[in-house]
Amino acid sequence: MTPTLSLDTVTHRYGDTLALDDVSLTLSNPGIHGLLGRNGSGKTTLMSLVAGLRKASRGAITLDGQPVYENFAATSQICIIRESGDTTSEWTETINDGLTLARDMRPYWDDAYANRLLDRFQLSKKHKVNALSRGQRAKFACLLGLAARAPLTMFDESYLGMDAPTRYDFYDALLEDFMAHPRLILVSSHHIEEIAKLFEEVIIIEDGRVMLHESADALRGRGLTLTGPAAAVDAIAAGANVLSEKTLGSTKMVALYDVAPDLEERARAAGLETALLPIQDIFVHLTAKRGKD
């Protein structure tokens, strides 16, 4: 059931602004994959192109070999939930109208599941969409994304505006539904530390380019922090790729990236404290060199 999404040398411009620069990427493993990037890095553009909401300036995007743009055989398999909630109308619609539309349009729509999610997210079919709070609207948008059960589902900052308990509720629902119906799920988020444990693969994009694409477990093993007496830390860290360093009196902490396989062992033997660098920190360090957006 899990389709193969493939981007081949995709470039996209808005006028003179280069939003995506020669991106090639293949995703074919079922999983909840993280698309990480700072604001303006090209995440939303990438997802919008994949969903056929925009036409790429150059390059090919295919789902199971089929071009996605203006091709119902492909687009009916894809669901994108963008932060702004543009899958629902604000004119006069009620939640029930939104559900009716999704039921008509979505080939894998699960109505019973949608109703269970309504209860879980405490939404009523009678609510008017334009009277919902931002958080409620985000919940409804995420509900549409989950119940659509599209083989390729993308959540682009979809849960902005949800409070923390609701976000965790969404993560639980996402994981449960993914396990019951494995498929390709791509999530972009600024709450990396909350959701990173769910990721199977991580893609980091920066300035419109794919900076990194690898399994989350492997990525977690790539960064290491060493803490201990400054001299000992310096001795072990010499020659390694140092992302950041801090000192407190004679104690020093360094964050290292892409370390030699035996470094951790040597550090422990030297009496240093070692810890893996969380994905959030790796992301921050790798993308921090750029100034403001």
Partner: peptide, 20 residues
């Protein structure tokens, strides 16, 4: 206007095509 402005977006964001 409503069909052109709103229904178009809903149709495409729900996986429909512009041609459809």
């Amino acid at each position: 206007i409503y069909i052109g402005w709103t229904v178009l977006q809903l149709h495409v964001t729900h996986g429909g095509t512009r041609k459809g």
